[in-house]
Nucleic acid binder design. Sequence first.
DNA 1: TATCAACCTACTATGTCAATATATTTTTGG
DNA 2: CCAAAAATATATTGACATAGTAGGTTGATA
Lengths: 131, 131
Amino acid sequence: MITTKGRYALRVMMDLAEHAAESCVPLKEIAERQGISKKYLEIIVKDLVKGGLIKGVGGKGGGYRLVRKPNEYNVGEIIELAEGTLATVACLAQDAEACPRAAACKTLPMWKEADELMRSFYRSKKLTDLL
Amino acid sequence: MITTKGRYALRVMMDLAEHAAESCVPLKEIAERQGISKKYLEIIVKDLVKGGLIKGVGGKGGGYRLVRKPNEYNVGEIIELAEGTLATVACLAQDAEACPRAAACKTLPMWKEADELMRSFYRSKKLTDLL
DNA sequence: TATCAACCTACTATGTCAATATATTTTTGG
DNA sequence: CCAAAAATATATTGACATAGTAGGTTGATA
């Protein structure tokens, strides 16, 4: 299930996209507009910066801004970054240790299929499709 | 993410399907074959009984058995029952309280779309497809 | 009726989620 | 230059979920 981290990350990105005209949007404004704790958003936004999706500018008049054009983001990369993974089962997560049952596992192909289905679904959705 | 509950439930159902010839399969055998703690399986199997997918027969020579033919089960109903829900986001779970943002939520249609995609995917998979 | 197996209740460690609190660094407008 | 503003970093917390374990009771059947 997609948690608040992924959902809030998406809302932050949408907010930034809607205010892409301004060069910088301070987190305080986003938090107020979206009705989400600024402190909690700091954690989420940090991941977005680290993942290279947005840039943070400190100081007076600073804030965050997108590094690409709004229509050049897809939903998949945003929630995958915020959630860490969007794998259907633990053994398909990026950092998963190899499952000893993998070779004989009758269900693994189905999980892979489901994963591919979801991944391509979210990748096909552009950020601007949501605005 | 689908947890051990859902995954183990599926393996129990597959095991029962493979041994559908026997009238009853004791949980002890399933636990040994699948390499899963019998005690933990009891919890999972209880839900499957309560949900009407299998039947438990007590006493000597007892065990569990399917109530339908193996090819009449789909994967979706099994993991949905074991997991409680397979909703993509909390607000789309069966027992979710109404979200006040629902009317204005820009992302809700996408989550609903994703939910429908997953649900129909898992419903289209029959238990016997996995054997 | 003795046995086997389902069924029931309670408990526990570990981890994740969803934040909050406080302190520090960095940047830039005046 | 300096001070306000904003990002960034670290630590902690309560609540809940996950993944089991332990032990006892009921009930069917060979």
